[in-house]
Amino acid sequence: MLIKKPSDIKPSEITPESVYRNRRQFIGDGSKFLLGAAAASAMPSLANAQTGDSLKARAPVTMQRTPPAAWWADKFADIKPAPDSEPFYTGEALTPYEDVTQYNNFYEFGMNKGDPSSNSGSYKADPWSVEITGEVAKPGTYNLEDILKPHDLEERIYRLRCVEAWSMVIPWVGFPLADLIKRFEPTSKAKFVEFETLVDAETMPGIRSRFSIVDWPYREGLRMDEAMNPLTLMAVGVYGDYLPPQNGAPLRLIVPWKYGFKSIKAIVKINFRETMPNTTWVDLQSQEYGFYANVNPDVHHPRWRQDTERRLPQTLFSRSRIATRPFNGYGEQVASMYEGMDLSRYY
């Protein structure tokens, strides 16, 4: 796959918003022709896809969540199922919904893996707005509904590799970050994207901890080409259902070829900038965590090895320790972005 560096993309090449907003008409025109040509037998599967019944994975009925607001239900009624082939899909066994939603690192809710699910009862994912700032033609504060409106949701099944050497396979629901970014019309100076998580001491007990060494808000960032990569997802759901607070409701990033901490949760701010942003983990421990944080079995974390991972869930007597792959197995899609870079230096 040819992926251009941000410096190679002329501002004129980025799709103007007017064209973008009318893309449905454009796609519609094309699909009318395609549908006319297609055999009638193709119709049921298409209809099926539109009702969302053919999603690869659904949350258990008893655990399904109520929508954060009424409009969410409409949005989720129409999710495009994951394809049958890599990279937006993997056939590896899914990590069960219970584990995906009860084994989390979300330090704003506490330090233990079970804290985010048990301490987030008073958290509110609605109403929500996201502030867009920096090197864009259309900065401003946008309601979440307006942010999601033009985007069709799709299911994607990705591997998630935590820097702590465990991993999961998770069916997300979201849309490409690239589509969102184009709407704000980044200027030629936009070389990096910076994200911030909500800080609300009232509903996030971890923020109140006196012994936390974090300077909230949690911040993460991507290089522009990483942000525009087709793999990079803005997620709003998991297992065909609305994101629970502990998984980053209502809006989070998913960057499957990087360690999990890059996939920032509960995003309230997206800032476009010319210089590399400081991120929370780099500020805390720059010898241990780098800006890139690409999954790399050859570069060990100073405190533990990274060449293997514990695929969760495990039981004590059936432990699946598997080899960690470069870029978490997404090298074909992303390795070209780092050509010529010394990845042991830029970890």
Partner: peptide, 15 residues
């Protein structure tokens, strides 16, 4: 907890 398989998804870490 070991016999009830009640150590969570990452039992080794928990132990």
């Amino acid at each position: 907890r070991i016999f009830q398989n009640n150590l969570g998804p990452d039992p080794v870490q928990e132990l």
